[in-house]
Design a protein around this nucleic acid. Sequence first.
DNA 1: ACTATTTTGAGACTCATTCTCAATTTTATC
DNA 2: GATAAAATTGAGAATGAGTCTCAAAATAGT
Lengths: 143, 143
Amino acid sequence: MGNENFVFERYLISKGLKLTKPRKIILNTVFATHEHFNVDGLYDKIRKKHKDVSRATIYRTIPLLVESSLIKQSLRCLAKDHYEHTYGHSRHLHLICEKCGKIIEVESKEAESILNKLAKKHDFKIREFNIGAKGICNKCQKK
Amino acid sequence: MGNENFVFERYLISKGLKLTKPRKIILNTVFATHEHFNVDGLYDKIRKKHKDVSRATIYRTIPLLVESSLIKQSLRCLAKDHYEHTYGHSRHLHLICEKCGKIIEVESKEAESILNKLAKKHDFKIREFNIGAKGICNKCQKK
DNA sequence: ACTATTTTGAGACTCATTCTCAATTTTATC
DNA sequence: GATAAAATTGAGAATGAGTCTCAAAATAGT
Ligand SMILES: [Mn+2]
Ligand SMILES: [Mn+2]
Ligand SMILES: [Zn+2]
Ligand SMILES: [Zn+2]
């Protein structure tokens, strides 16, 4: 268990918001594993233990987690919005298989530094990288 | 005017499909300019001249244009699906301003070759690159 | 012209996300 | 620890981009 609670609470206080029970439950469930997630999956997981947390609150809490830099949107090319931890994870890019859905995570220092360079040239301030590709994984190629 | 018509017709024939009037109108409107587009904008533009092309047909034709490699989906991080020409355009990445919506296009040989290298290492066959960033453009930074 | 096949427009439908609002919870004040 | 003001919540309605359905229209082969 990291200190996401600390980070989140500090953020909430700075905005005059409160670390309520539902927000705590959502935060803890989000950080119970390190996988990519979407709202539906998160909702099911939360509901197994806490029958009283609503979809609406999940949808309302996620932007707060994003704003506090604990998570970020990722896998932008899928149908539903997906998210992943920012806190405690190094930068990486995704190779997504269009056949089986497999997601390969790859370290991306080089790619990002190039993007940084290009952004600098255009005096553009990057807030969120979006680097990756869709295609066919090795297993699916052999079919 | 390029020969997108040729490319499209060849693709359609290869699939046993026909280059009908609505499909021609859609193709020509898509290639009348070189900008990114989404279905709503395209629909409005088409409707100014042709009151008889439906949204449904536009939604049905776009995958055909994608399949024939004339266009591809892009700007994956926006709310609506956006597309841009593949035919007649070199590869590039996008820096998208979250304040004003400005889109900066940047040549990306380096970034892509790095992604290609990483994909090769994982024996992953890339079909579509997705490289870019969101942030704040230089004008919007000065506010 | 006749028929089989494809395509189309209109609008119904889906489903992820956002919004609304009354009820509940939280914090501040006494 | 009651009381009141403010923030948050759950339930479900609303939204809206994209998909699907189906009867009518266009097309191609005979
Ligand atoms: Mn993690
Ligand atoms: Mn073009
Ligand atoms: Zn695969
Ligand atoms: Zn801007």
